[in-house]
Computed example of a mutant assay.
Amino acid sequence: MKVLQFTIPVPHDKSVIADQFSLPYFYPYLHRHKETQITWIQKGEGTLIAGNNMHHFAPGDVFLLGANLPHLFKSDPQYFEAENEDAISALSIFFNPDGVLASFFDLPEVRMHKLFIQQHQQGIKVPVADADRIITSMTGLRDSSGADQLVQFIHLLKGLSDINEQLQPLSSYGNLPGITENEGIRIGNIYNFIMQNYAESLTLDDVAKAAFMTSESFCRYFKKHTGNTFVTFLNEVRINEACKMLTANKFESISIVAYKSGFKSITNFNRVFRSVTGSSPREYTESFNGKIAIAQPAPEIDILKKGNSKAAFANGV
């Protein structure tokens, strides 16, 4: 039983893999692999699903994903419309601390770094203040070979371990229930359907029909695999999309943001927004703009939710 278990191709002469790629969009299905993954988003925006939580991603973001953490980098809808071959680009580093590197990670000098990886199996987003340093190590690793690549890998591990901030896990759900590969695709398609239609008057019956299930069966299935009811999940999807609009400063009024996010009542929008984010839309925007003035961070909202768009294969990242 598995969530689209991927096998990362490992060349016989490498223990650490650097995968630099440019594609129309990111791979749209929930998947996992035994390798720990570090990904730097160079171009493209969308939603990272890690376990049961969702996070916005944008250029400059760096994420660490623990081994076997179900995840999905889901491109925003416009990337599926244009089909531009170079619409997104990213650099990912893959390594397996329990594979050929096991003896290396057992060295006394490296155990601290191994502990960091173990403590963050649920994934982290690298803080803005540390991102440039981590990116430098990632590009150095990508551009080197042989023993020099291992030296850069050690620099990368040290850079991660030297992060001196309280790091929040990307996922708050230890393990997703075991599912077959076909179910993994079905869940991905459900995410896609909801993300394509969240702005409409989307009903439980609509989504159940799209999933080829009865409403009753869908409710049980959805609750089992997300820990949420459909209504709670849909509200969180809509609030996340509202947060993207608010932080991008591309809105005429909060009422229009509410409408474009799928809410027909500004009162209901304000109530749900506060329940999800802990603040009102105006407070959220002012807080974000204040942080921008200080540190220029990338916008992010961390809530339970799932992905977006058409079923198509790009890269299993």
Rank of each mutant, 00 (worst) to 15 (best):
A87W: 01
Y79F: 10
L91R: 03
A82N: 03
H33G: 04
G51D: 11
L65W: 09
G66I: 00
W40T: 08
Q78N: 11
W40R: 11
D61K: 08
A67T: 01
A58C: 11
S75C: 11
N53L: 01
E83K: 04
M54D: 07
F26Y: 11
K43Q: 13
P77H: 14
A67Y: 04
F95C: 03
W40F: 06
A58R: 14
H56W: 08
Y27Q: 06
T47C: 12
F80N: 06
V100I: 01
E83T: 06
E81F: 07
G66L: 03
N68H: 11
G66C: 04
T36C: 08
P97I: 05
S92M: 09
N96R: 02
A58M: 11
S92H: 07
Q42L: 14
H31R: 13
L30E: 08
V100R: 03
N68Y: 12
E85D: 11
F94V: 07
E83A: 12
I88L: 09
H31Q: 10
M54G: 13
P28Q: 08
Q37K: 07
N84R: 15
L65I: 05
T47M: 14
R32V: 00
M54W: 04
Y29R: 12
D86F: 01
F73A: 09
E85R: 13
A87S: 09
K43G: 06
P97E: 05
K43W: 06
A82V: 09
N84K: 15
P77A: 15
Q78T: 07
A67I: 01
